[in-house]
Nucleic acid binder design. Sequence first.
DNA 1: CTTGACCTTCGAGCATACTCTAAGGTTTAT
DNA 2: ATAAACCTTAGAGTATGCTCGAAGGTCAAG
Lengths: 133, 133
Amino acid sequence: MKISELAKKVGISAHTLRYYEKAGLLSPSQRNQNNYREYTQEDVATTKFILACKESGFSLAETSALLAIKDNKDQHACAEAKLITRNKIEEISQQISQLKNMQTTLIDLEKYCCGGPESAEFCTIISTLEGDS
Amino acid sequence: MKISELAKKVGISAHTLRYYEKAGLLSPSQRNQNNYREYTQEDVATTKFILACKESGFSLAETSALLAIKDNKDQHACAEAKLITRNKIEEISQQISQLKNMQTTLIDLEKYCCGGPESAEFCTIISTLEGDS
DNA sequence: CTTGACCTTCGAGCATACTCTAAGGTTTAT
DNA sequence: ATAAACCTTAGAGTATGCTCGAAGGTCAAG
Ligand SMILES: [Zn+2]
Ligand SMILES: [Zn+2]
Ligand SMILES: [Zn+2]
Ligand SMILES: [Zn+2]
């Protein structure tokens, strides 16, 4: 199938598919006589794999590593896949806790501000940010 | 004081200070006769305000809006500061729940994988990503 | 008088994952 | 024959917040 057919089938743009190819994630098995990309069912599966990785939060680089395992399973160990996944879990945990800290700070900031239409002269949000602790 | 003194005092680089200036966040009150930036105590306070905003998770654009309130309190209402803060809280909540979804997906992915040194032929991480559900 | 440590501006580079355009070639239908 | 609807490539643009470098001016010490 041609690129836009694949694009439609998996729900992303042809542009993005070409981008993934440039990033080394997905190369169609062949080109036809006009140099058009020709995708197979296996390419569809690969594309879906890429999208599943994306759904799970993996970057394109990590996805690339997972694809290498998928495409050559007997040359890779379970340990590799697990390590990538664990690292990602750790990374996301850190992001979550950082965001939670911000959330806490923001909620503290917001809760004493009256939010009314009067002058911000005594606004607790502003004065807290000013360091009037 | 000159730029590197301020930089040192607040713990960021002179480059970043100039960047903040270009972004409209912080302009030194004056230049000296050599065109060197001259910062005052008020500029120090402004810089600290910017860093407090950053700590809380505000973008430079949001920080800019908060600075405008701080610098002209009687022309602004509490409502403005509160709205900015609330929007940020909402935005961060969404980011957190998105990350939590990924986290859940990743943990499910990881938990059945043995993580051993054998071939990834039956790796549950890979097969789940392949869609063998 | 030269060395080193400052300062200035402008502009490029980084990271990520696209997104789109331009210029050109091909296919298909009417 | 021609227009619509595809396809190709290379490269620029988007967003954010820095980060760095180049080229040049200034200043103080020895
Ligand atoms: Zn109020
Ligand atoms: Zn308030
Ligand atoms: Zn295993
Ligand atoms: Zn496994």
